[in-house]
């Protein structure tokens, strides 16, 4: 959820700047605030879960 919000903020800030609806420094500020959270949340979203996986092959 957090990841989606941060990603949307980053993309929106980039897009609005491109359409010149937003001043460059506001866009930069938004991305600086949202991008770190996006990177970390993205990793936390797709990383391996902490619960036990399959029992590994431990030999015959």
């Amino acid at each position: 959820m957090g990841m989606v919000i941060c990603g949307v903020i980053c993309c929106a800030a980039g897009a609005l700047l491109w359409l010149s609806l937003l001043e460059a420094w506001i866009s930069a500020l938004l991305i600086v605030a949202a991008f770190p959270f996006f990177v970390v949340f993205l990793g936390l979203w797709w990383n391996a879960s902490e619960r036990e996986g399959d029992i590994p092959f431990i030999g015959y």
């Binding site: 991008f35 770190p36 959270f37 990793g43 990383n47 879960s49």
Partner: peptide, 27 residues
Amino acid sequence: KFSFKETWIPVTASQALFVAVVLVALG
């Protein structure tokens, strides 16, 4: 690869700071 790995915060760590420095580095 690192981003796909199991992740937690070490039990001895100062939890808020441990995570915050990563965010600050990116910022």
